[in-house]
């Protein structure tokens, strides 16, 4: 294990922790601009986190230990996921511990904890949100796995850093299969991160809410952890997308420290473009009824499987 690998690993985790709220802030800012509202600062999520960390925690009377433990578990899994996603460099010592399929498992663990905690207190809204989250999750997960399988088949490995490295170094060619899976991945990203066609992140009390409904009972530092974890989740998904579909500029191990230095501004650029794109998608689309969400995710699954089949047939 060379020092460069350790530095890359630490840098990636630190970047994810620091940049995730800013990315969320940037998406919110773009949305506000597109909707002709006065935009909040990019730093707004940090202010929110600082405020929440300074407040006392109020627990429901019948909250169990699970309810108190869940925010740390969710936050922990998200940090662990950030550690194995190659956002800046591919030489990650921790990435040997978990491949792309284990990454999906990590994300699922976080979902289980959020849902269990939401049902723990026993309020109607929490249970409702948890059930909807599970519905979205069980439909989005196969689609996400299919997306990862296509990339894994193209590069003959399930390790995410090796996939990114393989896609950067191979000859430039048109991959219809990757184009299909990119669209499928975008749909999964929207659904999993409670973005607009499936859930509205800007709403707080609405009958159709999913993610916010699960966090209603949380307060103080617990809520801060949960919100930070949600920002990290969005950041992680964006970075998985970059690793699979636009991996150019990610520092490879052979590139040395110089490549790593170059990767940071490129990542910022990719995040800025992706965030603006996300805001445009969210502004253009209307929220679906909850019962239409399965159709939305079935489309994602269909596109991912089509990508897989097209790859098998055309070899591209």
């Amino acid at each position: 294990m060379t020092p460069l690998r350790i530095v890359t690993q630490l840098l990636e985790i630190a970047a994810a922790l620091i940049a995730a709220p800013a990315f969320l802030g940037w998406v919110n800012q773009c949305r506000a601009w597109l909707q002709n509202r006065r935009a909040p600062s990019v730093l707004q999520p940090y202010y929110g986190l600082r405020k929440l960390f300074g407040k006392d925690v109020i627990l429901a009377e019948n909250a169990s230990a699970l309810f108190r433990f869940a925010p740390y578990a969710v936050f922990g899994t998200m940090v662990a996921a950030a550690a194995i996603i190659p956002s800046m460099g591919t030489g990650l010592p921790l990435s040997t511990a978990a491949d792309a399929i284990a990454l999906v498992g990590l994300l699922a663990t976080a979902r289980v904890f959020v849902s269990l905690a939401a049902m723990d207190v026993g309020t109607a809204f929490g249970t409702l949100g948890a059930r909807r989250e599970m519905m979205v999750g069980f439909l989005a997960e196969p689609a996400l796995l299919m997306v990862l399988f296509v990339a894994a088949m193209i590069s003959h490995t399930t390790s995410l850093p090796l996939i990114a490295e393989g896609l950067t170094t191979r000859a430039l060619a048109l991959y219809p299969s990757l184009a299909f899976t990119a669209v499928a991945f975008t749909l999964v990203l929207l659904a999993e991160n409670a973005r607009i066609p499936v859930d509205n992140p800007a709403t707080h009390l609405e009958l159709t809410m999913i993610h916010e409904a699960m966090l209603l009972e949380y307060s103080g530092r617990h809520l801060a952890m949960m919100e930070w974890a949600a920002a990290l989740k969005l950041f992680n998904y964006a970075c998985i997308g970059f690793a699979l579909f636009i991996p150019w500029g990610t520092g490879t191990e052979a590139g040395g420290p110089a490549a790593l230095m170059l990767a940071a501004p490129l990542l910022a650029l990719k995040l800025a473009v992706a965030g603006a794109g996300l805001a445009v998608v969210e502004t253009l689309s209307a929220k679906l009824r909850v019962f239409r969400a399965p159709e939305f995710l079935a489309t994602a699954f269909l596109l991912a499987v089509l990508g897989l089949l097209v790859y098998l047939l055309l070899g591209a």
Binding site: A173, L174, P176, S177, A179, F180, V310, L314, A316
Partner: peptide, 8 residues
């Protein structure tokens, strides 16, 4: 490649 794209 373009033809394969068209087919897809």
């Amino acid at each position: 490649q373009l033809l394969n794209g068209c087919a897809a």
